[in-house]
Amino acid sequence: MSNTLLARFAQNVFWLGRYIERVDNLARILDINETYARESHGSPDWRRVLEIYGDTERFDASRVQTGEHDVLNFYVLDTKNFGSLVSSVNMARENARSIRHLISTEMWTQLNTFHTRVLQLTQRDIWPTHISRLCKEMKEACQTFEGVAEGTFFRGPAWHFYSMGKYIERADQTTRVLYLGCDLLEEDRDAVNTVRWNALLRSVAAYHAFRWVRPRGHRRGDIINFLLHDEGFPRSVKLCVGSVEIHIENLVLRRGQPRVPAVENACTHLNFVLETGLGHEISAPALRSFLDQLEIGLIRVSDEIAAAYFRMG
């Protein structure tokens, strides 16, 4: 009996994985942006974050309506922004609530504690002097959740859907950050570039890993390839997509789930694009078009998973 997972719960746990990953990544980006992305007069350039998430239009529109001009508020406290920290943690908890009986007690407890804390956040927490501490706290809460899940979540079908959600979101995040690389490719002042390439690496926790792989200098294409393809780097698109595939495989091989060709085709296609879509000479337009294709591929994988498993009957 325990092998039967309701379609609705599969959807809940998939989105739980996505939302927690989203919070983790958002906190990371905000933190890095605060430290490393400074404008000419020294204050953080928050609009870069809007670019990463493609939120520029949405933010500017809401600003006209609400008079709010604080990007940080938009991404941390704004409950009307479905992509904010508060909204995402809320959604994570709502999804978890429906599957309370499928996750471990410890996961639920930790998430509840996290949620309670987020409900208590105020403007003070996003003051320039506090934002870094807040981001660190948010990141650690997500990492704790992931750690608890890793240690206590039974490796049944629910675990696999949770993981799929997590890795799809993670691949998506790395892809988004790579869009920043397009801008860097178009500039040619190396001095500025190094600092900003490093910031790009740091925003996906890749700085030290990359230095380890390439200790003695690199060409700029190497960073892009590293973030896309390196199978040692935990947030590489290749590793994340590979992880999604492994979990789909496990569902079939270990959980008696019938194979769904549409899902497999979507993964094969994405892998193919990932492997062959970008040539040796990486130009900004080529990279941009390639990343667009990756995004489309990721959305397709996510949609096919939803169609195959979440809407049965």
Binding site: T4, L6, R8, P157, G313
Partner: peptide, 21 residues
């Protein structure tokens, strides 16, 4: 389960799962 997870076909009751009914 909730009501929306169940479906009746030919007078038999089924659950909507990831494997189907």
């Amino acid at each position: 389960v909730e009501g929306r997870d169940l479906v009746v076909e030919r007078d038999r009751v089924y659950m909507r799962t990831i494997k189907g009914l």
